[in-house]
Design a binder for these strands. Structure first.
Lengths: 214, 214
DNA sequence: ATAAAAAACAGGAAATTGCCCCATCAAAAA
DNA sequence: TTTTTGATGGGGCAATTTCCTGTTTTTTAT
């Protein structure tokens, strides 16, 4: 029997390691590597490292969060199977993740049996949608939800996340290795898309729409 | 060699199980039982069940959360050694937990080695305080005596609420029929109490602590 | 290879925020 | 009564944010 390789992407080292142990306790699966954020995963894949059979991707992470990572994977490695893991059942996040090709969206409070089942099904058929996810999708399709049709670019999302802190824009620019003036340009674009006039407005919009987790 | 028994209290089944696996991977420790909230633990202890050597207690749980559980343990089983686990380094939570006799406060993103070390030290000397905890305690002591009870005055709460919007402070002053300078005074007091440096910091603190609904 | 589009960057200026130290006045405490 | 405290308001100033106007560089498409 050939084992399936699993990558875990999660900034909570303890959880990631523990999850890795759990995965390895299933004889059919083997957790190869743990990444503490999306950027590390992306870098590894770009270096041409061996690709896993399934990725377990945390939604909330620093540096490059789950949504940004999922978007990158969708564009660059559309065939990779990904199970996203989250603490909360944030409707917008679910929709975005599925839209970007995630094969499933699990809450972190599922039990090991369900995880096993999800791994099995995603391996076989490429997806495993819980009732929660299908319900959300149904509601969305039936149009009763005000899906924010705005979508932000990776850099914009990154700025939004960093702006939800006490950093100044100059500090954010340093962190993103860009000129403060570029950041200012992103900021204006974001304000425009969100329809806000101040940084506080941006922060509240971001939190309301699940663009950042606090 | 006699193994030390560990109880885990966490509502995230996946995390709890994974953590349990991790603990069991240390030869010196053995995780006996997992409880999904504080109430279950309390009930078990009241029934006279065997007491563990160390409890790993999650802070954020439904039914009976970590703080409530810690308080009960402090009153009823003061000798039990407890390590609290949390996602965030919330200053107030840290203080309360330590006040109620928690032997340590770990973020969930620590690595397994640190967990092992924490277990060892808490077993030996009854406590393991990270730099984060000691720093917080220092700040609290050096700050002022009633720091543990951060309560905001009505006017401050009103300002906090109005500040969670795109209003300028001048507009807020008009809305509250006060001078902008008075508002500025409130703002400084709020910053002090919250330990923040910017309005964005205030907004995020307010949302995190449920001071405003968004 | 070249034109078009985008991303990155800049100068300048007004508005807002954040941070000092200080004044007044009334109520409470000593 | 005297002192202290707290709420209110002020002047001034530096840092930051916000909003314009652009130019240069890189990517993309034809």
């Amino acid at each position: 029997m050939k084992q399936k390789n699993i990558y875990i992407v999660d900034d909570h080292v303890l959880f990631a390691n523990a999850l890795s142990n759990l995965v390895n306790s299933f004889p059919e699966y083997n957790c190869d590597r743990i990444f503490s954020n999306g950027a590390e995963l992306v870098e590894a894949l770009q270096q041409g490292e061996k690709e896993p059979d399934i990725i377990l991707l945390d939604v909330k992470m620093p540096v490059m969060d789950g949504i940004a990572t999922m978007r990158w994977l969708h564009q660059n490695k559309p065939d990779l199977k990904v199970l996203t893991l989250s603490m909360e059942d944030n409707e917008l996040t679910i929709i975005q993740m599925i839209k970007y090709g995630a094969g499933g969206y699990l809450l972190k409070d599922i039990d090991p049996k369900t995880l096993k089942k999800a791994l099995d099904l995603i391996d076989e058929q490429g997806y495993y949608y819980t009732d929660m996810v299908t319900e959300t999708l149904m509601r969305t399709i039936n149009g009763d939800k005000k899906q924010s049709e705005v979508d932000f670019k990776d850099n914009e999302l990154r700025l939004i996340e960093l702006a939800c802190s006490e950093r100044t824009y100059t500090e954010i620019a340093e962190e993103m290795n860009l000129s403060p003036k570029t950041i200012d340009g992103y900021r204006q674009a974001i304000f425009q898309k969100m329809g806000v006039k101040t940084r506080v407005g941006m922060v509240i919009y971001a939190i309301k729409h699940g663009l950042v987790q606090i």
